[in-house]
Deep mutational scan, measured.
Amino acid sequence: AQASVVANQLIPINTRLTLVMMRSEVVTPVGIPAEDIPALVSMQVNRAVPLGTTLMPDMVKGYA
């Protein structure tokens, strides 16, 4: 199954992502693919992302 990017902590709005904030997990619905984690580093989220939330393309500025 495809692993997705999941928030490893609460990520406040406009925060630049770092590796420690993200983990890969097989979840439904599928979000951003886990292999994109390196590309997500330093991108900003456009909303607060609670712990355990799957990151979707529309949550990350410049990803989609």
Score class of each variant (00 low, 15 high):
Asn14Trp: 10
Val5Asn: 02
Ser24Met: 07
Ser42Cys: 08
Met22Gln: 00
Pro33Met: 09
Val45Phe: 01
Pro57Glu: 06
Asp36Val: 12
Ala39Gln: 12
Ile11Ala: 00
Leu19His: 07
Val27Arg: 11
Gly52Asn: 13
Ala1Met: 12
Thr28Asp: 15
Arg23Glu: 03
Met43Ser: 07
Met56Gln: 11
Met22Leu: 13
Val20Lys: 11
Glu35Arg: 06
Gln9Cys: 05
Pro33Asn: 08
Ala1Glu: 15
Leu17Asp: 01
Gly62Lys: 09
Ala48Val: 14
Gln9Ser: 14
Ala39Trp: 14
Asp36Ile: 08
Arg23Ala: 05
Asp36Phe: 10
Leu17Gln: 00
Met43Asp: 04
Arg16Phe: 10
Glu35Met: 09
Pro33Cys: 07
Met21Pro: 00
Pro12Arg: 07
Arg47Asp: 10
Ala34Phe: 06
Pro33Ile: 12
Gln9Arg: 13
Gln2Ala: 10
Thr53Glu: 09
Gly31Leu: 02
Lys61Gly: 08
Pro57Ala: 15
Ala48Ile: 13
Pro50Cys: 08
Val6Leu: 08
Leu17Glu: 01
Lys61Asn: 09
Val6Cys: 04
Glu25Lys: 08
Pro50Asn: 12
Arg47Met: 12
Val27Leu: 05
Thr18Gly: 04
Tyr63Lys: 03
Ala7Leu: 03
Leu17Asn: 00
Leu10Ala: 10
Pro38Thr: 10
Leu17Trp: 02
Val26Trp: 10
Val20Arg: 14
Gln44Phe: 13
Gly52His: 12
Gln9Pro: 02
Gly52Ala: 08
Val45Gly: 02
Gln9Gly: 07
Ile37Lys: 09
Asp58Ile: 09
Leu19Gly: 04
Gly62Thr: 05
Glu25Phe: 09
Ala48Cys: 05
Arg16Glu: 05
Ile37Gln: 06
Ala34Asn: 05
Ser4His: 01
Ala48Glu: 14
Thr28Gln: 11
Ala48Arg: 07
Met59Pro: 00
Thr15Lys: 06
Gly62Asp: 12
Ile32Phe: 03
Ile37Gly: 08
Pro29Lys: 07
Leu17Gly: 01
Val41Met: 09
Asp36Cys: 07
Ala34Gly: 13
Leu19Asp: 04
Ala48Asp: 15
Ser24Glu: 15
Gln44Lys: 09
Ile11Cys: 03
Asn14Met: 15
Ala64Asp: 08
Thr28Phe: 10
Ala39Glu: 06
Ser42Arg: 07
Ala3Cys: 14
Gln9Trp: 13
Met43Val: 05
Met22Phe: 07
Pro57Phe: 06
Gly52Trp: 05
Pro12Met: 09
Leu10Tyr: 15
Val27Gln: 04
Val60Asn: 02
Val5Thr: 07
Pro50Gly: 11
Leu17Pro: 02
Ser4Met: 02
Ser42Trp: 11
Met59Thr: 05
Gly62Cys: 06
Ala39Gly: 08
Gly62Glu: 09
Leu55Phe: 09
Ala39His: 14
Leu51Lys: 13
Thr53Met: 15
Pro38Lys: 13
Met59Gln: 04
Ser24Gln: 14
Ser4Asp: 00
Leu51Val: 11
Ala1Ile: 13
Pro57Asn: 05
Arg16Thr: 15
Thr18His: 08
Val45Trp: 00
Ala64Phe: 04
Ala3Phe: 14
Met22Tyr: 02
Asp58Cys: 13
Val27Gly: 03
Ala48Tyr: 11
Met22Trp: 02
Pro50Ala: 11
Gln9Asn: 08
Val45Pro: 02
Thr18Ser: 11
Val41Ser: 04
Ala64Gly: 10
Asp36Thr: 14
Asp58Pro: 08
Pro50Ile: 08
Val5Arg: 02
Pro29Tyr: 03
Pro29Ile: 07
Gly52Val: 02
Leu10Glu: 11
Ile11Met: 05
Arg47Gly: 07
Ser4Val: 02
Glu35Ile: 09
Pro29Trp: 03
Ala39Ser: 10
Leu19Cys: 06
Arg16Asn: 07
Ile11Arg: 00
Pro38Phe: 10
Val6Thr: 06
Asn8Arg: 08
Pro38Ala: 08
Leu40Tyr: 02
Val5Gln: 01
Met43Cys: 04
Pro50Leu: 14
Pro12Ala: 12
Asn46Arg: 12
Pro57Trp: 10
Leu10Gln: 15
Asn46Trp: 11
Thr15Ile: 10
Val60Pro: 00
Ser42Lys: 10
Ser4Gln: 02
Leu51Asp: 15
Val27Asn: 03
Leu51Glu: 15
Gln2Ile: 10
Gly31Glu: 02
Thr28Trp: 05
Met22Val: 11
Val49Tyr: 01
Val49Glu: 01
Gln2Thr: 14
Leu19Tyr: 11
Val41Cys: 06
Gly52Ser: 12
Asp58Phe: 10
Asn14His: 14
Ile32Val: 10
Val20Tyr: 13
Met21Thr: 03
Gly52Thr: 02
Met21Val: 03
Met21Tyr: 09
Val41Arg: 08
Leu17Met: 10
Thr54Asp: 00
Asn8Ala: 15
Asn14Tyr: 15
Met43Phe: 11
Val27Asp: 02
Gln2Arg: 05
Val27Ile: 07
Pro38Glu: 09
Gly52Phe: 04
Val26Lys: 05
Leu40Phe: 02
Ala39Cys: 05
Ala3Trp: 07
Asn8His: 11
Val45Met: 14
Tyr63Met: 04
Ala7Ile: 06
Ala48Lys: 10
Leu19Met: 14
Ile37Val: 09
Val26Pro: 12
Val49Lys: 00
Asn8Tyr: 04
Leu19Val: 05
Leu19Ile: 06
Met59Ala: 08
Ala64Gln: 13
Pro57Arg: 13
Ala48Gly: 08
